[in-house]
Design a protein around this nucleic acid. Sequence first.
DNA 1: CTAATGACGACAC
DNA 2: CGTGTCGCCATTA
Length: 109
Amino acid sequence: MDFYFGVYEVVAKIPFGRVTTYGAIARHLGVESGARMVGYALNNLVHNPGGEKVPAHRVVNRLGQLTGRGWFPGDSMRERLQQEGVEFTEDYTVNIEKHFWSPDGISDL
DNA sequence: CTAATGACGACAC
DNA sequence: CGTGTCGCCATTA
């Protein structure tokens, strides 16, 4: 379960108005090819305590697509990102290149 | 222990 | 350039 915890910590540290990708998180955790595991962890987020404190809506795939919008009620994922000033290239695709945030930036704290 | 799955990613066609 | 398939690795059945 340490993998999940690592995902939570990284996602929880995503700055306001920024987004990151599953692959980036996976690499930061040392599992370069474990992008799927990141999404899996986020999926289990709803089954974990305090999961609401983790802005999973800021996590998108490497294309910036809100692949996990189906796990959010309605369009809450898209609306939250828009409220944070995230620019959308498509209805369910964010400008990842513009708002991308690398987990390694945690060192910036 | 083996098989199947998954909020992904990269490569092949 | 769009679609399809395989690989990846942890978790679950």
